[in-house]
Simulated scan of single mutants.
Amino acid sequence: MNYLPDGAYAAVMSERFVVKGFAEDGSIIAEGRRDTRRIAPSQWRIPAHNASEYGTALLRSILPKRTFPFPKSLYAVEDALRFFVQDRPNAIILDFFAGSGTTAHAVMRLNRPDGGRRQCISVTNNVVAAEEQTALRRASLRPGDTDWEKWGICDHITKPRIGAAITGKTPEGKEIEGDYKFTDEFPMAEGFQENAEFFTLTYESYVAVGANFAFQRIAPLLWMRAGSEGRRIDDLPEGGWALADTYGLLVDLDRAGAFCDAVAAKGGLRVAYVVTDDDRRFQAVARALPDGVEPVRLYESYLSNFRFSMGR
């Protein structure tokens, strides 16, 4: 017979554990509580964290015939995030090495039970595996070609996985087989009440940006900078300024008065983007904006970087 030391016995009898009953020999049957207020242990031995079954096999159910080396267990990532964002329904999670997209998938699962609006920003390259590169080069393809890029990690794995998780259907249009397990059990084919948008990072020339020829390509960045919520301003406003749900855009400084009045009347805006290379006029607009609205001089860093790189 084994006996618990006093410290372990006290822990079992504390609020950290739930007593489920007693065995025939009178010993206690207890189960540890999930408590996000505690510090996560450095080592977990939990069946749901098995990467083979709930990483590789789960990904194979979502993306049949597509492979990714060593994807993490969906539930291990979910448990790790839960320690930090369970009580923060509007948290923003940045995954700078997105890989197969497990973190974005886990955020969806966290949002489902409590109706949270947590966001995940997933960043990844579109590198093609070495063995696939060999075959593609033999076919006279090179990076940048459409038939090359479609085999990259982002286009072949990350984006399709996130899309399939939301819709509940594989990229081929078939319902995903199997169920989610553990804390929130339901068929994977149900999908999630989520949305996703994908952007490709490119380099835009100084001339195009400074002359407002590239606005449509940077418009998503302004929307993301302001919180990634609500309507987005995708085109330069004909009237010289425009307001979305969380930000405003001023491109004609002769309309600054009307813009600032509209920002004050609308209320709730977080950011006001002002397109100008004149610091004095920018400061004048910034002073006229309501308290709580952050003024951002658009293209300032781009112009400064250009002058620096050109030695000006």
Rank of each mutant, 00 (worst) to 15 (best):
L253W: 01
F282I: 05
R38W: 13
R109L: 13
R112S: 09
T36R: 12
R45I: 10
L249Q: 01
P89K: 06
D235E: 13
F70W: 07
D147S: 01
E172M: 14
N212M: 15
S301G: 04
C154F: 15
A76F: 08
E172P: 02
V296Y: 06
R307A: 10
L59V: 04
K20L: 12
R112M: 07
W223F: 10
D277G: 06
A23Q: 14
C120V: 07
V271Q: 12
P171K: 00
D277N: 08
D95P: 05
P64V: 07
F308G: 03
L289T: 03
Y9Q: 11
G210V: 03
Y9C: 04
P237V: 00
E78R: 09
A57D: 10
L221K: 04
R137W: 11
N50D: 15
D277A: 06
V19S: 12
L250E: 04
G248T: 01
F96K: 05
R138M: 01
P171N: 01
D278L: 00
Q119E: 08
R225V: 02
P237S: 00
T200C: 02
I166Y: 09
F259L: 02
L289F: 10
N2D: 13
I153S: 13
E132D: 13
E149L: 06
A264C: 00
L289M: 09
R45S: 13
G210S: 14
A264E: 05
I121C: 04
K174W: 08
V296S: 07
A189K: 15
L221H: 02
A104N: 02
L201N: 03
G239E: 10
K20H: 03
I157R: 09
A23T: 14
A189T: 14
A164Y: 05
D184M: 05
K72F: 10
F259D: 00
R231K: 13
Q193D: 14
R137Q: 14
L110T: 01
S73N: 08
A130W: 05
P41W: 01
R307K: 09
G268H: 10
P89C: 06
G248W: 00
F17P: 09
W223H: 15
D179G: 06
A10M: 08
R112Q: 11
D291W: 04
R82E: 12
A40E: 14
E149Q: 05
N305S: 09
T202G: 04
F22V: 11
L110Q: 03
A98H: 07
F215K: 02
E132A: 11
P143I: 08
T102C: 08
R270E: 06
P290C: 10
A106Y: 06
R280V: 01
Y3R: 12
I233N: 00
A272R: 03
S100Y: 07
P295G: 07
